[in-house]
Nucleic acid binder design. Sequence first.
DNA 1: CCTACCGATCGGTAGG
DNA 2: CCTACCGATCGGTAGG
Lengths: 204, 204
Amino acid sequence: MSPRSSAHDAAATRTAIVAEAVALGSVEGLESVSIGRLADRVGMSKAGVIGRFGSKEALQLAALESAIATFTHEVWEPAARTEPGLARLHAIVDAWLSYLERDVFPGGCFLTAAACEWDGRAGPVRAAVEAGLARWQGVLGREAATAIAGGELPADADPRQIAFELGAIAMAVNQGRQLGRDEAAVPRGRRAMRRVLGPPRTPG
Amino acid sequence: MSPRSSAHDAAATRTAIVAEAVALGSVEGLESVSIGRLADRVGMSKAGVIGRFGSKEALQLAALESAIATFTHEVWEPAARTEPGLARLHAIVDAWLSYLERDVFPGGCFLTAAACEWDGRAGPVRAAVEAGLARWQGVLGREAATAIAGGELPADADPRQIAFELGAIAMAVNQGRQLGRDEAAVPRGRRAMRRVLGPPRTPG
DNA sequence: CCTACCGATCGGTAGG
DNA sequence: CCTACCGATCGGTAGG
């Protein structure tokens, strides 16, 4: 009688499909995740999978949205509890490296992979990837600007330069881990990020 | 009578196929370049294209080899004329940023794209990508070690850390140009690389 | 949510 | 180097 259960089931099915698409996509790229293999993985028919989204592109957008939510949860949220400025930047760096070290997505950072995969294409998926990365650069730049205004970073520092360099290091850590299987990538990244930010200030 | 002309033609055909594969692959990824579309682009049949290489994987390996040769020609060779150590590192940085700025491959750095695309896969192409990047890191690290030994960089600097950071910045420049269409990416990269290397030494 | 199917394209081969 | 073809798989739809 109650539609609750079926509505809940439908949402759970959709979530399971998206989770599988993100996991597979982080390993082999989002475009090469086919509806058919996805259907096998979640134990459904192709029509059942595609019916939830309407098109492969809509499924890709849902996967990207989910991966961004995961990144936000893993990297931004823990750091958002810290005071704005340099302390928060250091908290972001710690959470970011931890996220990379724990292989939250099985094939490494989904957003980095998507950025490489879509940067030569056109359309809504590429636009969403671009917007997601620009937003994150904006977050980093805002915290850097706060740190500069508060005298925690040099007055002549450039917030966008700092955001650029932190993003660069995170990409290289991801590549070192995924392609080079290099356990030294995270400590190297930490060292590089500390060189960008300077030492954390002891409060008081 | 002479086989010269046909042998030359055959080599030229192979070169044309590889060049097209590299160009297309830098834009949309090497795996998504199909034999059929490649055949259309070079005005041949599918069988003619695949016959030159035996398999798609062999074609991919040839494309990767060609892209590495281009990178070497564009970035290493001009710098190799400079004296080893810090001066050569600065020459590499200049050539590297110029290579990125001129979009030598239409979709940006082929090697960076291939590294992202193959880091979650297995097989000979992935191995070749990994080896190519490790070799380049080795070249950078060797120059850094020379600079340290010559007192041009701090005695406690880590050559592999320097190589890691330069590679990170180059990746971020590529992403900034290709995904963000950001003209500021190259100057930002130059500024970051100079921060890693310190100012160039005036000879004498 | 399923089965059954569509036309297109995939990598690759046979045969010349 | 070509035409013609192989079986497999692609994204997506019809109909229930």
